[in-house]
Amino acid sequence: MLFHSADAHGHCMDVDLPAPQAREVLEEEVSRYTNHICDLRSRINSLAPVSVLHSEILCEIFLRAARGVNDYEGRHWRSKYGWISISHVCRHWRSVALSCSVLWSELHLPHASHEFLQELLVRSGTAPLTVTYLKWETSGWGGHAVTAPTSLEQVAMAMILGSYHLERVRSLSLTFGHTGHDEILRLLNGPAPLLESLDITCVSMSDISSDAYDCVHQFIHHPETRRLRRLELYNLTMRWSTIVLPQLTHLNIRSEGRFTLLVDVEELMSSITYMNNLEELVINNALKPKPFDMSTVSNTFALPRLHTLSIQEGCSNCVHLLNRLEVPSLLYLNLGVSHFSGSIRSWLTQYRRRH
């Protein structure tokens, strides 16, 4: 076959080759021109105004875009990692995105497949991890329900919460349905020196085994888990009389009100007494009913840094808590008191005047 081609210097020449070889030569020539066009386009892109931005600024823009997508889109699986399209715009943006380890440090299960999860762990380098497990499925009535983790998801969580990666976790949020919580809670058996926030939600109020409770208790009291500042528990009753967490700044305890999940107010107070650094305290439907007795006087204790206090409880527990707490820095007080009586209303009015 005789056809025109160009040598390495771009000079045109006639070539007589068999068809297979001629095809190979032509494909090489197409590849060479394609690469040259890509290079020209990259040079054109380098002249765009956005290209003058430093890599650090671009990385910050990418981080804000990723967080904005996750906050706005909610639970839909495509939303969690939809921001990755940013890295497909051009070679420069992809290079910047891959070099920004923090950008890949948010792990959402089960939205990330096992293979993708491994890639995220590699790309995130040594950056602190934010780990969220939340699995929603559409119910028959068009609502959403939390379902149990599959075996593959449990394997993925085991990979993340293994001793090496657990030491990188800064924020951990676990939301469970009817089953599967024990297997994952048992994984919390190592140090988490970077952990600052722990959120455990049991939507279905399922019973959790005693050894799973023990794992959580030992986990938050581990000598190397000293950075824990925020603790949020929903339908998870702890043995508060044995919990000492003076480093906490935010404590949120909520329950749907099943009696076996409720805690005695005095037991809870015995733990809060040591939380001198608390800035926010939320107690919602989590306390056992207590007979109202205005004559009962207990020792008070101060939470000098507390600026936000929210209590949604029966009137007796509300009054008891407010009687016990000294909160000189309080800025916001939210009370949801049930079963009002005249004497309680009068007491709350006096309390508001004093504070």
Rank of each mutant, 00 (worst) to 15 (best):
Y164R: 07
A148E: 13
L333F: 09
I253T: 09
N277V: 04
E196Q: 14
G314E: 13
N252Q: 10
N299R: 14
Q118E: 15
L47P: 01
Q218V: 13
S99K: 07
I200F: 08
A145L: 10
I220N: 03
V203D: 11
S101Y: 05
A97L: 09
S105A: 15
S255N: 14
V96G: 04
Q118A: 14
P128C: 00
R78M: 07
L261G: 11
H307S: 07
L172F: 02
S51A: 08
H355Q: 12
L287R: 02
L26W: 05
S46M: 00
L121R: 07
T132S: 01
M269D: 01
T34N: 10
P149K: 06
N70R: 13
Y234D: 07
L172Y: 01
A8M: 12
L2E: 14
S341Q: 12
F301Q: 08
L194W: 07
Y213T: 02
H9M: 10
S124V: 07
S343L: 15
E183W: 05
S346Q: 14
N189C: 11
T308V: 04
S241T: 12
S113I: 06
A6L: 15
I44K: 07
C59Y: 01
V50D: 04
P128Q: 08
Y351D: 05
V263I: 15
P20R: 09
A66V: 07
H4D: 12
V25Q: 11
R94I: 06
H9V: 05
A48C: 09
Y81M: 00
F176L: 00
S79V: 02
W136A: 06
W240Q: 04
S310Y: 08
L233M: 12
L335C: 08
P304Y: 04
D214P: 04
M238V: 14
H178I: 12
R91K: 12
S139E: 13
E196Y: 06
I311E: 07
S209Q: 10
P191V: 09
H11C: 08
L161F: 05
A127M: 06
M1I: 14
C315Y: 11
N45I: 09
L26N: 04
C59T: 11
L287N: 01
A112G: 11
R78V: 04
F301D: 08
R227C: 13
V89E: 02
R64P: 00
S298G: 04
P328F: 14
R91F: 00
W83C: 00
D207K: 11
E28G: 02
V265R: 00
L248M: 07
A19D: 15
M1K: 03
R78S: 08
E232C: 11
Y351A: 09
H217D: 15
G143Q: 02
S79P: 01
E60W: 10
P20V: 08
G257Y: 11
A302H: 06
P291S: 08
S210F: 10
E256V: 11
